[in-house]
């Protein structure tokens, strides 16, 4: 099943809590999430860790309707209704998928500036899964 076990989740904590990517020492490409072999040069396995800023721009998004969420998200949906999942282009290059938070679905636009924040994702098997979501950057709210 499409099931994220506790060990599988635990192995990815550096990415989930700290947005840690792998910079290829050969071509400089930042791989996030990590790949076995560099995604760009497809040759090197030699990486150094790099912490990403979490700032980025919405490339595309969808609004998951009530009752259409995966079962592990049904509690969130029960309390919050619909939620937004977006593809975000991080300023350092990588594109990543995550939920949006602290904004209404109707306010979301392609091209909107966002910033990663640590949030509770869901609880399963008695273990809370934390991870990043994105919220609108302040300047956008003011402007």
């Amino acid at each position: 099943m499409a099931y994220v076990s506790v060990p599988l989740y635990k192995r990815t904590i550096p990415q989930r809590y700290g947005l840690v990517g792998l910079r290829c020492k050969k071509c400089g490409w930042i791989n996030f999430p990590p790949k076995g072999v560099c995604k760009n040069c497809k040759e090197s396995l030699d990486f150094e860790k790099v912490k990403l800023s979490g700032k980025g721009t919405i490339y595309s998004y969808t609004v998951i309707s009530a009752a259409a969420a995966p079962p592990e998200f049904s509690k969130q949906e029960k309390y919050g209704g619909t939620y937004v999942v977006a593809l975000v282009d991080l300023d350092e290059g990588p594109r990543i998928v995550a939920q949006l938070t602290d904004c209404k679905p109707g306010e979301v636009k392609i091209g909107m500036r966002v910033k990663a924040v640590l949030r509770r994702i869901y609880e399963d098997e008695g273990v809370i899964r934390y991870g990043f979501k994105f919220k609108p950057q302040e300047e956008d709210l003011n402007g």
């Binding site: 969808t62 259409a68 969420a69």
Partner: peptide, 28 residues
């Protein structure tokens, strides 16, 4: 559960993504 098994589990699924959601984000 079963319909979600063929996308990316570690990131898409943990973001609450669904199969319709993936095609929806392409459509948008």
């Amino acid at each position: 559960y079963w319909l979600g098994v063929s996308g990316d589990t570690e990131y898409e699924r943990l973001a609450g993504m669904t199969f319709a959601g993936l095609y929806a984000i392409m459509a948008n």
